[in-house]
Amino acid sequence: MTELLTAQYDLVRDARSVLLAYCAILAPADFTAPLPAFNHSSIRDLLVHGAATYQHWLVNVALGQSHPYPEEATFPDVAAVGQLYAQTDEFVAEHLQRFRGQWQTAMPLRVPRRSEPVQLTPLALFTHVITHEFHHKGQILSMSRQLGYTPVDTDVVRT
């Protein structure tokens, strides 16, 4: 099953590469412009948030490590965000290797702001982070439309 999940994540990475290539054509000021309709977040902010979510659930929670969360301002452009996602790819690879063969085994995990451990499976965590990324990908494309751009097709299956 690890091979299947790795193949699935490769599809996620491919869709992300299309999104990042699209974001690279945005004016730098638009990439970091806060939009009121999106809680004054920028496209850059949502991309960084997406990577931070992978780190939070797969590394800090599932593996019990303590990595500081990335600060949006330290990623001034798409190239820097791309490097952040290269690190994210390493986090995913570590998660996939660590939980090989244990995908549906519930584990008691400490989650910040929760007094009691939460029972979660490695598969649930993996599914959560990739669907979370796609949720924000849709928001990013809507944000770009509000800024006057015509979004490209960033689906896994592009036509």
Rank of each mutant, 00 (worst) to 15 (best):
M1V: 13
M1W: 11
E3Y: 06
L4D: 14
L5P: 10
T6R: 13
Q8W: 15
V12W: 09
R13L: 08
A15R: 07
R16S: 01
R16F: 00
S17R: 08
S17G: 04
L20Y: 00
L20P: 00
Y22F: 15
Y22G: 11
Y22W: 13
A24R: 14
L26S: 01
A29M: 03
A33N: 00
A33Q: 05
P34L: 00
L35I: 13
P36H: 01
A37K: 09
F38N: 07
N39G: 03
S41T: 08
L46W: 00
L46Q: 04
L47Y: 01
H49N: 10
H49W: 03
G50M: 10
A52M: 07
Y54H: 12
H56C: 00
W57E: 03
L58T: 08
L58H: 07
V59L: 07
N60S: 03
V61P: 13
A62T: 01
A62V: 01
L63S: 14
G64V: 05
Q65Y: 11
S66W: 09
S66M: 08
S66N: 11
H67C: 08
Y69M: 15
E71Y: 10
E72M: 06
E72I: 02
E72D: 13
A73C: 05
P76T: 00
V78D: 01
V78I: 09
A79C: 04
V81F: 07
Y85I: 04
A86P: 01
Q87Y: 15
Q87L: 15
D89I: 06
D89G: 07
F91P: 03
V92M: 06
A93Y: 05
E94P: 02
E94R: 15
H95N: 14
Q97S: 12
Q97G: 12
Q97R: 14
R98V: 14
F99R: 07
G101F: 13
Q102Y: 06
Q102C: 02
Q102G: 02
R110A: 05
P112E: 11
R114E: 02
E116H: 12
P117W: 06
P117C: 08
L120G: 01
L120P: 08
L120E: 08
L120Q: 15
P122A: 07
A124E: 14
L125T: 05
T127S: 12
T127E: 13
H128M: 14
V129D: 04
T131A: 06
H132I: 04
E133N: 02
F134A: 13
H136A: 01
H136E: 02
H136V: 06
K137Q: 12
K137M: 01
L141I: 04
L141G: 00
S144A: 15
S144C: 09
S144K: 04
R145C: 04
Q146I: 12
L147T: 02
L147M: 03
G148H: 10
G148F: 07
T150G: 05
P151R: 11
T154M: 11
D155E: 11
D155Q: 09
D155M: 04
V156K: 15
V157G: 10
V157W: 15
